[in-house]
Design a protein around this nucleic acid. Sequence first.
DNA 1: GCCGTTTTCGGCCCGACTGTTTTCAGTCG
Length: 581
Amino acid sequence: MTNEDVAQELEDIADLLEIADANVFRVRSFRRAVDSIAELPEDVAVLLAESRLTDVPGIGKSIARIVEELVNTGTSEEKEALLAQYPESLLEMLRISGFGPRKAAVVFRELGISTVDELEEAAAAGRLQDLPGMGAKTEDNIINSIDAYREGQQRALLGEMLPVAEDLVARLREHPDVIRAEFAGSTRRHRETVGDLDLLASSADPAGVCKWFAGLEILEELTMAGDTKVSGRLAGGRQVDLRVVAEASFGAALQYFTGSQQHNIRLRERAQRMALTVNEYGVFKADKEEKGDMVAGTAEEDVYAALDLPWIPPELREDRGEITAAEADELPELIELSDIRCDLHMHSQYSDGRATVEELARACMELGYAYIGIADHSQTLTVANGMDADRVRAQHEEIAKLNEKLKQEGTKFRVLQGIEADILSDGSVDVPEGTFELFDYVIGALHQGFSPDADKITARMVAAVKSGMIDIVAHPTGRVLLARQPYGLHIDQLIAACAEHDVALEINASPQRLDLDDTHARFAVQQGCRLSINTDAHGPESLTHMRYGVMQARRGWVEADNVINTWSLRKLRSWFKKRRS
DNA sequence: GCCGTTTTCGGCCCGACTGTTTTCAGTCG
């Protein structure tokens, strides 16, 4: 059972407990455990075997016992007992916006409704309006929400939503009554996927701005329209929320709406201990004499300062120890896009890229890089026009000529020759016979023969790492966001091997991959691995995806020196050389 | 159910909006 499976089972229990009207704090505990397990870099089974599970924040004896039961038997008594009272199909109903556990319990108890289809039918037939707390309007909303749900309300890629958020913020800023505007939420935290867009503005006339925004033609549907808050849906069903506050509260509101929810809960608990209270309008005194006195609110930095903390970068605000680190003044100095001096994984026309080597080089000079590496596919990957030995030699000559030309032009920009070599089913590396010496470096990658057997895949990759043939492991888990699960892989073993043999792990910056993810990147650095952030571009236009790779690295607490792309060409070359000797 | 620089018991973040209510519960973030 994977961590994801365990988290799902615990979430089911939390949902069922809520339907069963259990203690709200008990439910909250389960939800906290779900989050903790979902983002664990290590396998729960490993933690369990080493009795380290209760070290995880939010997991105590009871939940640890349930996890143990799940890992050993695939189910738990807790869940079975709940399923004896409520059918599992009720859980799907909770996905319907505006329809929660209370209403689910009522329709099941009163009318025996247990599926989304039955719910829709009952709402359409007007059978819900006699139930307590429901009326004709409720039925309309349920029908609309079920439509939206069926449209497929899955999360969207950050790479798709960030440009939309940037555009909407620009439009807000053009409004004459808007003082400041930003996007917040998971978009500002640069999460790899985004559920909805959270926008924030300050104004002396919040109601006027809300009214204007509610009338924008890009909102295909309006779901909520108050004097300080507007919610609607974009084409395609994506939800957008706008909040408008007074300028004096902008910093507090930005902090609040950036989240994450767990991070905010930790902050507020801390505020309570300091006799303060935090909400989206500011930080206020909570003790009797001065109750309500405002301490901070205009700037986000001031909110943290009022809580005796340095400002915490949004990417870290996930309740993963950032508040403790901030307290001790031990926040990482996160890598920035401007630290990146090269991109080492891109494809030219020598395999499946659209541009020539020179076009890629010129585009990267424009981006301000000091050098790049071309890494075309190897011969086994015929579908991607992988290079055989002859083509490797031809490319080698072309790159040498280009470097000579660049030298003549007086620039120090240089092009390295790498290769994205397939790691074959026996763990050998597909570098064409007699060409190994030509390459400045080799990237190892898995593209075919995905076995369902995690042990096999792991052994194959570890063998390649141990062979001394590869310098970087490309997109280590093989996942494609919202499309393909990672191949089964014991990533802790791969990370251990990379640390031991000084092989870098890639953070593939393609918005569809972002592989490694944030928690694995952090774990890899903790284990002593180097990382390499690369775009895997197949044309010049996707070279700018580098920013998404850097965002993911920042979420993984990664500093510039952990990433080989921040090194000078001289330093990187000597590292490659040392690895070969 | 979890947790501890007031605590091993007694707390647990905070507010907007909606729809159904005559003062508030449910849902959401």
